[in-house]
């Protein structure tokens, strides 16, 4: 059996008297799409925040590629190749697509113009942005300098996924990527997700949408009461099973993952 690319053991996070994570384990295998499902308040987002560096767990350890890591900010996680697409997308509406894709990691011109004048290398950033978007099939972009606020919801999501795919070398985390989208746009984003997977980058997908989860996920992490209840294979379980497990209506018969 291959080793997980991202592994967490015994994560605990308390907010006052509420225990959001209760000795939670987590495994992400190389090249897979792992869906994380759970009822509201089950602690999904806290788990994801702990992995993406937005929350520092009180206890527990995280290993990336077998090496122990601890992140105190999303930027540190990013430096390790873990990219997160937040539900809010974290984009500046008034700035352009290229500006947003390179926000916080801008490229400077080579030579004195970059060193002394600190001038941005706009042509190169625009070229890379355009290439990344067309890699993901967002081919028909006319104007990479268009402000993000002029894009539709699906287009924005596409830009956010492209940004993560462009820089996320190890793991990409997608938080509810289809929650705010229409049917057609959701479809497009699901194709984007499969596209990214075909490049060999593992993806963690948080979603409430069972059809979407069952369609793209290789394994499903069911989160309940602050911990991993079980990991199921979507081929051997139905959506009703998954819903029953995550709401506690039924206990999973077998556990795919060794404890």
């Amino acid at each position: 059996m291959t080793d997980p690319i991202l592994k967490a053991r015994g994560l605990v996070k308390r907010y006052g008297r509420v225990t959001a994570l209760d000795r939670c384990d987590f495994d992400l295998m190389p090249g897979e799409i792992l869906a994380v499902i759970g009822d509201n308040g089950a602690g999904k987002s806290t788990l994801i925040k702990a992995i993406s560096g937005a929350v520092v767990p009180d206890e527990g350890n995280i290993w990336l590629d077998g090496k122990p890591v601890s992140f105190s900010s999303p930027i540190q996680a990013r430096d390790h190749g873990i990219e997160t697409v937040y539900q809010t997308l974290a984009m500046s509406p008034a700035l352009s697509i290229a500006d947003n894709m390179f926000m916080g990691r801008e490229l400077r011109r080579p030579g004195w113009r970059g060193k002394v004048l600190r001038q941005l290398d706009r042509p190169k950033m625009e070229e890379i942005a355009r290439q990344k978007l067309s890699d993901l099939g967002l081919m028909t972009i006319q104007n990479i300098n268009q402000a993000v606020e002029t894009l539709s919801g699906g287009q924005r999501q596409g830009v956010a996924v492209a940004r993560a795919a462009a820089f996320g070398s190890r793991v990409i985390i997608l938080d509810e990527p289809t929650a705010a989208l229409g049917v057609k746009e959701s479809r497009r984003v699901l194709e984007l997700i499969l596209d990214v997977k075909s490049r060999g980058i593992p993806i963690i997908l948080i979603s409430h949408n069972m059809p979407h989860v069952f369609e793209v996920a290789d394994r499903i992490h069911v989160h309940r009461l602050g911990r991993r209840l079980c990991v199921i294979d979507p081929k051997n379980h139905t959506m009703s099973d998954a819903v029953a497990y995550m709401t506690g209506a039924e206990t999973p018969p077998e556990v795919l993952q060794p404890a």
Binding site: P74, I75, R78, T84, Y86, T88, L89, A90, M91, S92, P93, A94, L95, D99, N100, M103, G104, R105
Partner: peptide, 15 residues
């Protein structure tokens, strides 16, 4: 500009 536009988004984007 990013900070003026949406500080939380800017922070998450690494600014």
């Amino acid at each position: 500009y990013a900070v003026g536009d949406d500080p939380e988004a800017a922070e998450l984007a690494g600014v």
